[in-house]
């Protein structure tokens, strides 16, 4: 992967970010505080970040960023996207269906997406892992797990 293009892009992005931070931090003022108020530290950091990102761009343009970047493995990247989407769905499912059911579904789907095709085996793994995890978290550590619509009070 071309490290010059990446470094230049990242550096420019960070420079913009640091300017935005500098501007916003300027609004944080407080009464009765000395010169070094709540705006001082973020603004100082924003300036440092701006300088560093400038160096990054400069180095990249001069061809000094020699580090070889890891290339993306395309099929893998798609899988990352799919599993991430499943995880986000899982968060919503947990609030609706409660911990146990949604976790079993989550494990099953992720294993399936990663290329495990033996349905019975992965179903069994999903159920047993969920049971063990539930036992440790909810029973031993008494962490209140989301119960969703199966909550006993309703």
């Amino acid at each position: 992967m071309d490290s010059r293009r990446i470094d230049t892009g990242v550096g420019l992005g960070l420079a913009v970010l640091s300017s935005v931070i500098y501007f916003f931090a300027g609004q944080y003022t407080a009464f009765g505080v000395n010169t070094y108020g709540p705006n001082f530290f973020p603004q100082l950091l924003a300036v440092l970040l701006f300088i560093c990102s400038g160096c990054l761009v400069f180095n990249a343009l001069r061809g000094n960023s020699k580090a070889e970047l890891e290339g993306f493995h395309k099929g893998g990247l798609i899988k990352v996207g799919v599993t991430l989407a499943i995880a986000v769905l899982y968060l919503f499912a947990m609030q609706l269906l409660g911990f146990v059911i949604s976790s079993m579904m989550f494990l099953y789907l992720i294993m399936f997406a990663l290329g495990k095709k033996q349905h019975w085996r992965i179903a069994l793994i999903s159920i047993s892992v969920t049971a063990v995890v539930w036992f440790i978290f909810a029973y031993l550590l008494m962490i209140p797990m989301p119960e969703g619509i199966f909550s006993r009070s309703y």
């Binding site: 099929g75 893998g76 990247l77 899988k79 990352v80």
Partner: peptide, 9 residues
């Protein structure tokens, strides 16, 4: 995420 990406290679 890294594990998932690199799993096949």
């Amino acid at each position: 995420f890294r594990n998932i990406e690199k799993m096949e290679v």
